[in-house]
Write a protein that binds this DNA or RNA. Sequence first.
DNA 1: TAGATTGTTAATCGATTAACAATC
DNA 2: TAGATTGTTAATCGATTAACAATC
Lengths: 217, 217
Amino acid sequence: MQLERIPHGVISRLPSYLGVLLQLRQSGHSTVSSARIGEITDINPAQIRRDLAHFGQFGKRGVGYDILDLIERLQAILGSDHVHRIVIVGAGHLGSAIAAYDGLRARGFVVVAVFDSDATKIGTRAGDLVVRDVSELERTVREQAVRIGVIAVPATAAQEVADRLCSAGVRVILNYSSAMISVPAGVTLHNTDPVRELLHTLYYLSRAEEMAGLQAE
Amino acid sequence: MQLERIPHGVISRLPSYLGVLLQLRQSGHSTVSSARIGEITDINPAQIRRDLAHFGQFGKRGVGYDILDLIERLQAILGSDHVHRIVIVGAGHLGSAIAAYDGLRARGFVVVAVFDSDATKIGTRAGDLVVRDVSELERTVREQAVRIGVIAVPATAAQEVADRLCSAGVRVILNYSSAMISVPAGVTLHNTDPVRELLHTLYYLSRAEEMAGLQAE
DNA sequence: TAGATTGTTAATCGATTAACAATC
DNA sequence: TAGATTGTTAATCGATTAACAATC
């Protein structure tokens, strides 16, 4: 039970720490220092220790953090210590890519259904699943108590899909379309428009090239 | 020429503003207020005005912002007023999805090549392009002065691909693999691991369910 | 003119960092 | 013990917000 309000920034860094730990575990390490995590993630070591301190004392002074222990702790904090069921709407290239992505299962997610409205796609395979008619969306979400929905449909259909997911009881939406959609209060929306990421970095690219140009002259 | 240092957070919000404006333009609007943009993006209107003020005075008091004008201004600031060439490495589900994604072209990006190391994929189509052998990667990046690379290969191959992209001259990397990779100084790395996004939101989902559970009891 | 909305200031708030005592 | 590294404090830094005069 969390009494303290944890800053948003802290939460957003935890998955990165977890990613590093999982990678270190695979390469056979048993402990790691905040300095080492900082090197890999490019995050200040003091901040890493401070972030973790919000949730308790996980390290040993002079030694560092036990990797297996910290993985368990972080998974418990994030809620990835148990399985989460998700549905994917849209069985195009992107939807199929997400459905077939093994990193989902590896980190505690199970895709229970992939939907599409296109009759030529319904019945075909996407990952381990058979694509189903989007008209079954509400029933599936309710029956399986699905809380996470992924939108991988064209921009024009995104809002309608979001509305249907929300009213069926989904609490987290990951929007892969380029549409700006809105959701009711209580539903968390994550826009993962890859092009928006690119636009963001373009700014720094332009600045870097300007500076290179000035130096060259 | 920017004399003032613009906060990172400001830059990261500009693509959202641009997204709203593009959408409003399509629905036939001609002006918009910071209050309206705030509603859509869920960003404080005062912050929107303050963000824009870093770059000049773009609005009319009592009226708002001219949508067409502000689109141009933002595109110029971000550097999306001219075309950027990108290469995609990995022609699996995800690489193909990105290659075929029309939102890229719509916002000033052109995919010049898709690479893979799998002989059964080389020569097949991905979007408008034919998948090429990854051994041609360096030559293509150099000849076409490509500055942006997208990694859509399995985690185990990600670091090697990143190294090759960087040494060939790429300045921005969008990493879609789940691997934590490192890049030299001067290269901007964007990790777009979809599962990391999900993990992040899980935290809030768990808290929300806890609270709902408490209330129900 | 009256109403609306910007651009900007000043106050608040929160996040980051450096430093170091505690302690393994 | 000596060296290392945490947990935590205190200081800095930057981002957010409310409020309002300027002005369309």
